[in-house]
Amino acid sequence: MFLVPVFFGITLLVFSIERLAGDPVQLYTALNPHINEAQRQLLRQSLHLDQPIHIQYLSWLSDLLSLNLGFSYSGGSVAVLISQRLWATLELQLIGLTLSLIIAIPIGILSARKRYSVLDVTITSSSLVGTSIPIFFLGVAAILIFGYNLHWFPSGGFQSSDPSRYLYHNLLLDQAWHLFLPATVYTFAILAPVVLLVRSSMLEVLRQDYILAGRASGLSERSVMYKHGLRNALIPIVTYVGLYFGGLLAGAPVTETVFNWPGVGKLFVDYTTQLDFPVIQAVVVIITLMTLVANLVTDVTYAYIDPRIRLE
């Protein structure tokens, strides 16, 4: 169980950054100029600031582990703030990830099958170009064209703020309408590296004799490519999805800021600007936890995919 020390290491890091940033009470006062001395005293006690630093850390950690995320400096409950935003983040991330896999896998396989052909060179070079296009460029361009200029889609947000302006007076349709542009842009932004990964992984597999043997046994091309080829090429792809799920989540601040998407990433940006540490810490810890869980799921998936790993 290597995950546990990693997790504690990161909590320690997050905690130190806060304490290095200065007196939490001062940070708090900066956001709430009108509080009195008694309230400050109360805050000092609740953060155990009168005790040595390791006690402060331990009490902070125990609060965290008992899911007592506390209150932000600006007043809201951190748990409520995050839970309100988490769904929007996951919705965008999961849809983008799923769509990009659905699109990238057949393209990558095609490219590997026809390698060195004009098609392969076209796919490979446009994917290389694609990996270089940042989402803030793609996103801003898409908003300018399809939002401001053509008015096909809203320029941002999760849903219309005024219920009377819902698309066809239906909340779900309105949300889908808002989701379309961010999801499309996000899908394309993460598509290219997956195509390259599927291609190189498939090239490795297609070299193997069982692919040749499958073809020579008269199996259909689809069976050779998907049942035997893709299944064996899956390990690096699962690793990518698992390892970078955390990375993708951490990239949420940019995506969500571009589309004004009310997710955890946007929340993080807004509260980091204020140095509102209870929120910052909670988000970092939650995203780390999700990364660790994703790694765990990856390992379990390996064993499902490959019987050789199952044995160990």
Partner: peptide
Amino acid sequence: RLTEVFLVIPFFLLLLVFLQVTIK
């Protein structure tokens, strides 16, 4: 093991916090 810790850290988030703290 140290490398793995750094791989798991949500580096971009911490980067933002670091920079904001230093600016303050």
